[in-house]
Computed example of a mutant assay.
Amino acid sequence: MSKPSRWPLTADGIRFITPHVLVKRLQNHALAKGLFVTAMGYYPTASGHAMERKGHPDHILIYCTAGSGFLTMAGKTTEINSGDIFYLPAGSQHSYQASKELPWTLYWLHFDGTLANDFCQHINIVERKFTIGVQPRVIRVFDGISHLRHSSHNLAEFIQGGHQVQALLSYIALLVQQRKPSAINTFDTENLRAMMQEHIHSKLDLDSLAEAAKLSKYHFSKKFKQVTGESPISYFINMKMQRACYLLDSTPRSVKHVASELGYHDTYYFSRLFKKNIGMAPAIYRKAKL
């Protein structure tokens, strides 16, 4: 059960709880039961704000955009600052409170659904807190979801709100992945992409890429795949195929000419690679675009 917040809601604050009857409808709707909003709020400069829970039925996501505060879970207290986001899984025991000296500004969201656990695992905030910075895109989504309080409990609007939450959680997961030191600080990914772009018209092997990253081929390939989800050579080939699409779309050059421009002197080999990556042969792709 939750203890009530000791912070009185100001005129600038927002607090909304989805009616129980509507939650039941969302739980039973094919397009909504994956993820739906159960409560939401926005607390600006929340002096005296504090909450303690021994457990709760839904998942909670809280985003600090200014000021600071403290989160306590499993006997460990963590300072929360502007740009930090923290996730509280369903059933967790926790407490949090605003700093007395510099009280935080918070967006908060309660959600549930059959996909809730999967999304929370996808975000993978191991310490329950992660710094994503003050992200205008994230704030816009929170603001958009908050408009549900004006929807007169319209089911369609709450279905759309649930899909907004899915997009928000997916984006946060991407930010978390991009900011993991083990994944992105090992080498300069932008420099590697630039190197691939410079060789888009020719060949580039794994040895050269690993040397540029100052890593062994094994460690380079492993780290590159952690960041992009693809092997370095597959990534490079995909860049070439995207360039081929551009040339087929924007120029009258023959397939043979396009293949040669991208460093493939065997047109049939190029066509096989193109079909594997794009899903159709180059000639069919061009006709489909006309």
Rank of each mutant, 00 (worst) to 15 (best):
T38C: 09
R193C: 06
Y268L: 03
A183L: 14
Y285P: 01
R15E: 02
T228Q: 09
Y285R: 02
R53W: 10
A98E: 04
R149C: 10
G161F: 11
Y42H: 04
P57T: 15
P252Q: 08
T186K: 07
P4L: 08
S202A: 10
N124G: 12
T228G: 08
V227W: 12
K33M: 08
E211F: 12
V126C: 04
H257Y: 11
D266M: 01
K100H: 15
G91S: 12
F70D: 08
E52V: 14
Y235W: 13
K287F: 06
L22G: 06
I145M: 06
T114C: 08
I60S: 03
A98Y: 13
Q164N: 14
S250E: 02
L209C: 04
T105A: 03
T65D: 05
S234E: 10
L102V: 12
A156N: 07
W7N: 03
S234R: 15
M280I: 01
H257Q: 10
S151R: 07
Y285E: 00
H153T: 11
F270Y: 00
T18Q: 00
E211L: 15
H56M: 14
K223Y: 12
Q197A: 05
R253F: 08
R253I: 04
F274C: 03
Q160A: 13
R15K: 06
H110P: 06
E79Y: 09
P57M: 12
L248M: 01
I237E: 03
T267A: 01
M51F: 13
Q27A: 07
L155Y: 13
G133L: 11
H150W: 13
R286I: 02
D249I: 01
S221I: 15
F111W: 12
L31C: 07
G67N: 13
N81P: 09
L248V: 00
F111D: 06
N117E: 07
G162V: 14
R193H: 06
S99F: 09
D249V: 01
T186E: 02
G34P: 07
S202V: 13
Y87C: 10
G67M: 15
E127K: 13
L248P: 01
I123M: 14
T114H: 09
L88N: 12
A183I: 15
G41V: 06
D84L: 12
H20K: 11
A74H: 15
K240M: 02
T38F: 11
S5D: 12
R286T: 01
M241N: 01
K225L: 12
L22C: 05
G91A: 08
L174V: 13
S92F: 09
Q135G: 08
L148Q: 04
W7V: 05
P57Y: 08
T18G: 00
A66E: 08
G263F: 03
A46L: 05
S99I: 07
Y269V: 00
S146D: 04
P44R: 02
M40T: 11
K222I: 11
S99V: 09
F220M: 01
D207V: 06
L88P: 15
H94D: 06
